[in-house]
Design a protein around this nucleic acid. Sequence first.
DNA 1: TATACTGAAATTGGATGCAATATACCATCG
DNA 2: CGATGGTATATTGCATCCAATTTCAGTATA
Lengths: 236, 236
Amino acid sequence: MLTTDSAADAAIRHRILQAIFERRLPPGEKLTEERLAELFSVSRTIVRHALVRLAQDGIVAQRRNHGATVAAPTRSETRQFLAVRRMVEPAIVTQLAGMLNAQDASRLRDHLAAENAARKSGDRPTLVRLTGEFHLLLAELTQNNVLVRLLTELQALTCLAILLYARGEHEACPPDEHSQIVAAIIAGEGKQAAALMLKHLDHVEAEMDLSEPAARSVDLAEALGIRPRKIRTAKG
Amino acid sequence: MLTTDSAADAAIRHRILQAIFERRLPPGEKLTEERLAELFSVSRTIVRHALVRLAQDGIVAQRRNHGATVAAPTRSETRQFLAVRRMVEPAIVTQLAGMLNAQDASRLRDHLAAENAARKSGDRPTLVRLTGEFHLLLAELTQNNVLVRLLTELQALTCLAILLYARGEHEACPPDEHSQIVAAIIAGEGKQAAALMLKHLDHVEAEMDLSEPAARSVDLAEALGIRPRKIRTAKG
DNA sequence: TATACTGAAATTGGATGCAATATACCATCG
DNA sequence: CGATGGTATATTGCATCCAATTTCAGTATA
């Protein structure tokens, strides 16, 4: 709205986001500039801009002289994302419960229908994408661009975190929680909707193992009483 | 944290943000790439990246082929920013009320002292900057990077909005509200802190005139029944 | 006098090229 | 056989360059 993008730039970012939502771009995946440039038939300049912007909101990580990779959020960061979501999303559904018109309600119902269809047909990638986009849809309905951008970012990052830290096989989002939330919103019961959303986010977090791993390889060496043997030899 | 910036890029963005906080860069100001490049003694490439990133989070507006200007949020957008702040900032102080250590408390007290000093000495630009940075400090104390980024953006945009829509001469933030909030946080009274923050944000909004202007020049032409006379003459 | 044209200057968008750095591979040595 | 060092390749970061577009000044015209 405020900015006029190069069309190609926006397209690249959208495709990368979609790929993340559908779990075809795993966290940590290298995003080589030239390779992307080929794939999208644009110059590296455009790709660079797209990557800078994705990096700006944390979707890709850029390390100097190492280029860009799909972000691999740490456990600590994941807890941060979810903390923010717990602040914002209950407030979103509270707001929606008081202002939803018929058309908005339809969009929500349609979305739930699409989720169920994907679940029944066993189309896993679509289901995962849709369950994620549910949260985006709620943000969109507030007509608040800041919220849309924020949730887009947080949803993508949560999606990546789930890939990294999910306990065993888990169903993207528990089946009927979305529909319960929608019901509360449409019924105008803001408090109830907020409570359900909070519980929902708790479930999302509970399905991940976010406890800090006790030891790292560094600690291992220490624990064994062995000093790392990589002694820096005289260099000059 | 996740990204390793070009030092110059980060410096440019920081300087621009500071200038906005201190109200030396008014909304709508043109940011010419080459001019910035000279000022910072870097190439346009670096400036471009900095501007893209600032545009990404709404601080500057980029219109295709028109370059970048400091953002001039509309009234509607301003209401959106404040809506998000009302969702997030009470939650922030609630969280802080339960986890603040002695060092954090000192930082808050020091900040209040600095604000008061600036107020007494009549150093207006510093006062304005500090009252804005108070909200950033709260975000920092949560040690949640997403919140820091979000608040940085929203604070800058609120600052710009105040310049555009303030009713008469107003004191950046009402004098003692910050100290009341800090007192509640340190006392561990989360509910109270949240309520005070909410009231504080209401005051910020109340000091602006955010009602939509009834008519625009566009409507004027229409209202008078005059078609814009710039009829495109045959071109080829 | 005010408005519409015209050409020049300024500015941006994007591509390309080069230097710096990291990665990968391979030979050498213990 | 594994580790180490060195070279070649690949990739990134950045500056510069060119085309496209806009803006501005000046001129002509009604």
